[in-house]
């Protein structure tokens, strides 16, 4: 299937609608954000599969757990901040401990929350979700990968968290239309000295920066990690062994986020100098997408500057 939209949320809404039409046991649970998250697509095409839970995320997660015990396959969606931070005890006790087949979708993750500022940013969701023993944590790099990932998550029996970005224009990563395999990193560029590992919507930005640097004679390795848990340890170790320096990039707190998880592997196997790019020890603010990304060093331009600096050992 080829996709025309570059909007992750549109791809998500369309794909989930198709899945509910194919499998009547799949339902969508909305926390009153369906028109933003695109869960509304399900209601428009298949009303019976759409359950409005109102502005009450803790209950929504619990209802999903109860549905799952009876063989229904609930997909629960809200903003990433609300579906993880606000419901964390519910996720632990009602979903992860009983290992229930609940799919959790965090829309508007990271910085890009349609100019709503720090209350709606989610820089902790990877930390929280990756700490849960039974949870699979996924973070697609583009709309195509979102679709493939949802197909794979749907076949997986157990709790899964999918971290989506509200970026309407993410360039497709090479190979993102291929079937998705949980736990497998995707090699995008081979270079030397520096290996850059990125996840989620940062990957297309990093990819562009690295292609530009290549044209300028700087060849860096780049691997995209759409699965954060279980992390592709083999690839991390391979990268650590064959490079002088790792650079991790995420739209999340660097502390206890993706970069920390990468370092958890390298520190025990092959210690390597690592620079973690992401949100530092601070909350953010309002601003347009490009402004916010730039302010936090996550725009393609800023990433390119930083990577060049590291490559040249400045």
């Amino acid at each position: 299937m080829s996709l025309t939209t570059k909007s992750m949320r549109d791809a998500f809404g369309k794909q989930l609608t198709e899945m509910t039409l194919q499998d009547p046991s799949i339902v969508a649970l909305d926390g009153d954000l369906g028109n933003s998250t695109r869960l509304a697509f399900v209601e428009n095409e298949n009303q019976d599969a759409f359950l409005q839970m109102g502005i009450a995320e803790q209950n929504m997660v619990g209802v999903a757990a109860g549905l799952a015990t009876c063989g229904i396959k609930p997909w629960v969606c809200s903003f990433a901040a609300f579906i993880t931070r606000r419901t964390f005890d519910q996720l632990v006790v009602s979903v992860d401990q009983p290992h229930l087949n609940v799919k959790l979708v965090g829309a508007y993750s990271g910085l890009l929350t349609s100019n709503t500022g720090k209350t709606h940013h989610s820089f902790e969701d990877i930390t929280l979700m990756a700490s849960l023993p039974n949870m699979v944590v996924l973070s697609p790099g583009d709309a195509q990968e979102t679709v493939r990932m949802m197909q794979a998550a749907g076949k997986y029996e157990g709790p899964v968290y999918i971290r989506l970005s509200r970026d309407e224009n993410l360039e497709f990563l090479p190979g993102s239309e291929e079937p998705f395999e949980i736990g497998k990193a995707k090699w995008l560029n081979s270079g030397k000295k520096i290996a850059c590992v990125s996840t989620g919507a940062m990957s297309p930005r990093v990819y562009k920066a690295i292609i530009e640097l290549k044209a300028e004679g700087m060849s860096l390795t780049h691997v995209h990690f759409p699965t954060i848990k279980p992390l592709d340890r083999e690839t991390v170790i391979k990268l650590a062994e064959s490079h002088e320096h790792l650079v991790t990039v995420e739209e999340h707190f660097v502390r206890n986020g993706f970069g920390s998880l990468v370092n958890e592997v390298t520190s025990a196997t092959c210690p390597v100098q690592t620079t973690r790019i992401g949100i530092q020890n601070q909350y953010s603010q309002c601003g347009k997408n490009d402004e916010l990304l730039d302010y936090h060093g996550l725009s393609t331009g800023k990433l390119k500057m930083k990577l060049a600096e590291l490559f040249e050992g400045r």
Partner: peptide
């Protein structure tokens, strides 16, 4: 039928079961 222990959560699961 449902794991419980953290108060306030079981009723939500019960709602899910009835809805199912």
């Amino acid at each position: 039928d449902m794991s419980t222990g953290s108060l306030g959560q079981g009723i939500s699961a019960g709602v899910g079961m009835a809805l199912a």
